[in-house]
Design a binder for these strands. Structure first.
Lengths: 327, 327
DNA sequence: TTGAAAGCGTTACCAT
DNA sequence: ATGGTAACGCTTTCAA
């Protein structure tokens, strides 16, 4: 690996000049410029990011910590973040915390230690106290934290209300809400939305908890439905669990949407491909990722934040797991 | 951010001693040890990985470059890699190349510049000439390269043969093979396997190409099937396209497996959850990831490689998209 | 327009 | 057992 001094030597200039050339900072004469260009080409020189980081304490890398790479929502979100970060000249590095507090902390450490420019975090924690008083820009994505850092989320309560009301409008009379892991704030908010709609109604309702994982959700919902066959409407707090629900219902030989209707939450691509296709409360995934990336980059570049918090409206997409006509 | 000299000063020892303490290298007396421990706690000191890397040119970070984070196969694979890397004390950083040669190169650069310990690469390139003469350990995963670097793959030809033969055994007489993007070597091999079985038979067969993406695959297969309704068996070179195929077939009001049978490739979790559940050639995803991680770590740690190349047998999993009885 | 040299936070060698 | 210090590869200030 050639270093900057190799280049300097070959070009017969000083390292300072090469550095100036590299960073477009300060003067460098025409002759030097050419000599340096030639030397760089000849040596196949690439500046060491590590040395650079050590010197500047900066980098153009953004860390994105996601809680579960297997839940298709997060890959889609990651893509959105990546795409917009890329536009602005940043590179994003992904870390999968596996819904595990320790791992999350570990990755957070690792990233800050590597001088990433900033971190986008879809955290599993309520409080996020780990992220107090850090000198590095950070934004919370999708899952609101309770501390005061810039945040981009979907309006979870609104979305849950949309879903619940829709099921009721379509004639469901006995509702099951499948929440996510209890620790996740967005899941709590979705359940809260469900509750708010329910309490104004006189219909039966149940709430259970399940990880956002196809198979586990399927099992849990299967078991539940088996002993509570009267349920005729399911609001799942993620599309992943909704798809699990779909499978569970199939296995029980019930028909969707005739016997039981299902509404998911997230709006992942998969929901369109499943049969019957999934009615869901879609988050604007692209907009979420984009907003988070922009917000972080603004912080990194010292630009003022217009809003410290963005809350995006979800949208109900009617597909085939709910009935067409009112009842 | 406190530095090692802050610690040294507070503990009234030299930086050298602190460094020795930190790395468990060389002597450090009991008193010093205690003083250092105290100082570290007091200052909340965390060593800078960047400075460390600059000095040692090492790190305990493994870079994993995957081609498409939206294809569930790769998240599952990534998890396997992560889990085993973690066991050995390494942290993995993910980069999504988006099936894009430029991005892949870019990430490769970025990672090596950051002094990662090694790179696992599920590349889109045939030749992989970009990765010649590099001083950093590397292993190719899932997608064999044509250059000579350690590789972990599934036996793609064998798997394709398994699938094709199975369809024929189950009575399919007019087969469609849905290949992946042409540039991907594993896809070529799967198509080759398909061809090999077909040429010994006297049945009709077609081959088309589609990205490994649910929706695009669905569209392409839908269009194809519409103008070629005689097809009664599909071998899709990935589960993602198989699931797309399933949807396409549903839309055409054909029944699976009665009118048309489908076999996928990969063995993603999603295949179980879809209805009807997907018959597929399962790769042993966990074993793949584990083998790749171990191989890389062995290289990193200078241990001899037992084999420079691992090829894992796939296994046909019979589920509901193929018929139960022979015809 | 250019170069010398200090500094970034560690490690590792060499003395002591 | 401990400390001084060069070295890692780069940026940046200051002088020239």
């Amino acid at each position: 690996m050639p270093t900057i001094s190799d280049v300097a030597r070959l070009a017969k200039v000083s390292v300072a000049t090469v550095s100036r050339f590299l960073n477009d900072s300060g003067y460098v004469g025409k002759k030097s410029r050419e000599a340096i260009e030639k030397a760089i080409k000849e040596l196949d020189y690439i500046p060491s990011e590590v040395a650079r980081s050590l010197s500047t304490k900066q980098s153009d890398i953004i860390g994105l910590i996601i809680p579960d790479i297997k839940n298709p929502f997060f890959p889609e979100l990651a893509r959105a973040v990546e795409d917009t970060a890329f536009e602005y000249g940043y590179t994003v590095i992904l870390c999968n915390s596996d819904e595990n507090e320790l791992k999350e902390k570990h990755y957070f450490q690792t990233l800050t230690n590597k001088y990433v420019a900033g971190i986008i975090l879809t955290s599993i924690f309520d409080q996020g106290t780990n992220f107090k008083n850090l000198k590095i820009p950070i934004v919370a994505l999708d899952r609101p934290l309770e501390i005061d850092i810039p945040t981009v989320t979907t309006n979870n309560i609104e979305g849950a209300k949309l879903a619940t009301q829709f099921l009721i409008d379509k004639g469901a009379t006995s509702l099951l809400c499948v929440g996510g892991p209890n620790a996740i704030r967005s899941s709590k908010l979705r359940i809260e939305g469900f509750r708010e709609v329910i309490k104004e109604q006189t219909i039966k309702s149940y709430i259970i908890e399940s990880p956002y994982d196809f198979e586990t959700a399927e099992t849990i919902i299967f078991d539940y439905l088996k002993s509570n066959p009267s349920v005729d409407g399911i609001f799942a707090c993620s599309d992943a669990s909704a798809i699990g629900a779909l499978k569970a219902v199939h296995k029980l030989n019930m028909r969707v949407p005739e016997d039981i209707q299902i509404v998911g939450f997230d709006g992942i691509q998969m929901g369109k491909v499943v049969s019957p296709s999934l009615t869901t409360v879609a988050q604007n995934i692209y907009q979420l990722g984009q907003a988070a990336a922009k917000m972080l980059i603004n912080q990194i570049e010292g630009k003022p934040l217009e809003n410290t918090s963005v809350c995006i409206h979800p949208k109900l997409i009617e597909r085939e797991t709910t009935r067409k006509e009112r009842t």
